[in-house]
Structure formats: structure tokens, C-alpha cells
Write a protein that binds this DNA or RNA. Structure first.
Lengths: 230, 230
DNA sequence: TGTACATCAGTGAACGCGCGTTCACTGATGTAC
DNA sequence: TGTACATCAGTGAACGCGCGTTCACTGATGTAC
């Protein structure tokens, strides 16, 4: 009997940071306090990861700090060592989101010289981000509870700056038929709007879930006719 | 003393359907049961109105059935006479939203023959709706919990149909340089995206809160260059 | 015009729930000597 | 290399809250005769 418990305990120990279920945990804390890791390791990062998964899977309403704690095998108070409150965690999520949005925007730009192409690739990256993390995208643009956090604003501005930069390049090369601001308004609105329509499944195209590339193949010509000199 | 109570009661009676506060209500139900209207009159409509106000003022998280009941001077169970559950009320809100969005879209179209102008006016109506009911707009496009309600889909489709119709007019008059679908993708995305950026205050224009007309003055030329034959 | 009765739209009390957050505590970790 | 101690990151128990929802009930309304 004892060896069975030992076996169980051993298994559970390896599981403790991934999936956590009520009875297992009780077993752990009563039987094997000595061996269970008291410190989580990198709870902050794990919380953010788990939060993103939870957000994507259950939507904004399904995200709770207690549930995150449970999932990571940690008590309800633990997250408060890393985030002041729930809003702070959401903000951290959004900040990380903006960083990744920016990364996605510029991902394929390195090897391309043609500014028009760069604009198209940036748009594709934007849509790629939105479609692969729809709920995070909605959090960032929309219902983020407290938006006046400096770090959050900076991260957002950085992402938009990357977009602006490309348009400015177009302007510098004399490719635009309008001012940067007017061109930016159209280009950004179009891509942003398409992103939302796409994740809301409101676009009635042949393919019900078209890829980012596919959408930009459909849109770029129109956009460029709207703002480019061709 | 008695006359004071009477005076208070009289005042409160007239307030019962607007603002409701705990102690007042207790006074009512103990003192003046005879005179208080047992039936509300049109609770369903009042709930929807109050819900919309609450949504706009406190955001999606701030909306609760109990709070609505309190506000309307009605017990927590009362709303369930009119809506199966909270989601049903939200759906009703969104449905009504789509109707009004459609109305806003076509508002100024009657007197205008020029199809290009009609498109611009419809876009303006779209933005006007979004900016005057930002949270409702977000509910409709985004975090609506249960979206597979037939009536909801119909209302949505009807609004989009109005938009499509105008584009089809443009096509029929030979004004478009592209297929209706491609043109629609750009036009709708651009307007939709601008609406979101606008209510998120992400547009860096001279005026921090520009009017719908102002935005479309800035955008329409680009859009039309993108899809129109000019 | 008056009455009986079915239906409707409320009441009020209760249920259970999960949540965010706090706090005194304790085990683990890292650092100075 | 070993020890003392400050700091850190957890525990676990508790708090209060407001919420969605249910249910037996009752007062008001409208309708058939």
C-alpha cells in the first residue's frame, strides 16, 4: 500500500505544475509535504501563459485568478506575490500582446526592400496575430479595464510606430498619393477592421476561415489603389 | 411627523421607476403598499433601456440583472418574467443594436441619388452609431456570449445587407473598379476598423474626439480611390 | 353593468457559488562573513 | 566550507460580496358570460 502511494505521489509531483485537481493536491500536502516544491520556479511567467490559454479557451468572463492558481497547483494568494491585482495581470497580458503584435508586424520585413510589399507584409502579420490570438486581440483593443498604465501605452505606441514607420518609408520614396496621416488612417483602419471581422467570422468569403495571407491578397490592391501612386 | 412621511412617500412614488435606493424602497413597501403600483407597466422595455445605460456607463463587467432590478425598483426575480436569463437580455440588447445600426446607416439615404455619396453617408452613419454607443457596439461585434440565436443573426444580417445593397447599387451603375465582394471587403473593413479605433481613442488626429462626418471626410476619398472607377 | 375566474407580472426569501483580496504564517533560497 | 540571517515566495484559512437563478406566493388585470 505504501509503495502505491509513493508511486502516486511521484507521478503527481511531476504533474503539479501542469494540471492540478483538487483531490490530488490534498494528497500531496498531507502525505508528501517534504518533497513537494514549495517554490514554483517561475510562477509569474506560468501565470501569464496559463492566463492566455484560459482567455482564449473560455473568453474574458472565464478568466479568474483563483482558477489560474488552481490550474498551477498554487493557493489563491500566491498570484498576489507577482501581480498587484487582477487588472495588473490583464495589463501584463496586453503589454506582452503588443510586443508580440509588433514582432508579428515586422517578422518578414527584413529581406524586402519594396515599401509597398512591406506594407502588405505588415498587414498580413497584423491579421496573423489577430487570428491566432483572437481573445487577446480583443482584450488589447476594446475591453481592457484600466488603460492608463504607462507601460501599456508604451507597448501599444511601439506597435503602432512600427506600422507608421512603414508608411513613412512609402512616403519618403514618393509612393503615396496622399499625406501619411490620411494614408495611415485608411490602411490601418482597413487592416484593423478586417482583423475584427475575421475573428468575429463576419466575412462571407468562400473559405469560412481564410488565412491572413489570403485576406491580404484580396485587400492589398484596393488599399494601395486608395493611397498609392500607381 | 405623519405628514412628513406622507410627503416623502409621495416623492418616492414618482421616483420608483427611475432611481431606486435600498432604504427608500423599504419605506415604500412597509408604509404604502396600497398605493405602489404592483405592476411596473413596461418592465421589459425599461430593463433594456436601463441595461443599455448601465452598459455604456460601467462597461460590460458592470452590468448585472440584480442591479437592473434595483435601479428599476423591482425584485431580483422580476426580470425573469421577461428574459430567460442574462444572456437573453444581452442578446435582446444586441438585436436592438443591429436594428438601430441599420437605421443609422440608411438615415440620410432617401434624398441622395449619387451612389458614391450614398456609400459615404452610410459609412458616416456607421461611425455615428459606434461613437454614440461604443459599449453596445463592442457587445455586438466582439464579446457577445452566445451568438447562435436566430433572431440575433437575422438582425445582424439585415444591417450588413443594407451596406451590401449600396455597394451593389454602385456596381450596377458601373462605378466600381472591382467586384462587389472585394470592394465590400475594403469599404466595410475600413469603416469598421475606423469605428473601433475611434471608440478606443487610438486615432491620433488634431481633434481628439472627431465627429463621424469628419472621419469620413478624411477617409472617403481614399476608399473610393481604392474601389471606385474615377 | 357586474361578477367569476384564468392569466399575468410581480414579491420576497432563499440557495449556492465563485470570486477578489487580505493576512499571519512558514518553508526555501541566497548572501555575508 | 559552514553557519547565521534576511529576504523571498509560497501556504491556508478566512472575509465579505454580489451575482444568477429558483420557487411558492399574491396582487392586479383582462375576459367570458
Amino acid at each position: 500500500m505504501y509503495s502505491l502511494y509513493t508511486l502516486m505521489y511521484t507521478t503527481f509531483t511531476f504533474d503539479v505544475n501542469s494540471v492540478y485537481s483538487e483531490p490530488m493536491n490534498k494528497l500531496q500536502s498531507t502525505m508528501a509535504t517534504a518533497r513537494k516544491a514549495y517554490h514554483h520556479g517561475d510562477l509569474r511567467e506560468s501565470l501569464l501563459e496559463a492566463a492566455e490559454t484560459m482567455l482564449e479557451e473560455e473568453g474574458p468572463t472565464g478568466l479568474s485568478l483563483r482558477k489560474l492558481g488552481r490550474e498551477l497547483g498554487v493557493t489563491p494568494g500566491a498570484p498576489y506575490r507577482h501581480f498587484e491585482d487582477k487588472d495588473a495581470l490583464l495589463a501584463a497580458l496586453a503589454i506582452e500582446g503588443y510586443r508580440r503584435l509588433r514582432a508579428e508586424l515586422v517578422r518578414d520585413l527584413g529581406s524586402v526592400d519594396d515599401a509597398e510589399q512591406r506594407l502588405k507584409l505588415a498587414g498580413t502579420g497584423y491579421l496573423r496575430f489577430a487570428t491566432s490570438h483572437p481573445e487577446l486581440f480583443r482584450l488589447m483593443f476594446g475591453w481592457m479595464p484600466s488603460r492608463d498604465i504607462p507601460e501599456l501605452c508604451e507597448a501599444g505606441d511601439a506597435a503602432f510606430a512600427a506600422f507608421d514607420r512603414i508608411l513613412q518609408d512609402c512616403a519618403d520614396e514618393g509612393l503615396l498619393s496622399r499625406g501619411v496621416r490620411e494614408a495611415g488612417l485608411l490602411a490601418w483602419s482597413a487592416v484593423h477592421g478586417a482583423a475584427f471581422l475575421l475573428i468575429d467570422e463576419r466575412l462571407e468569403l468562400d473559405d469560412p476561415k481564410p488565412s491572413a495571407e489570403c485576406i491580404l491578397d484580396l485587400m492589398h490592391d484596393s488599399i494601395w489603389s486608395g493611397i498609392g501612386r500607381r
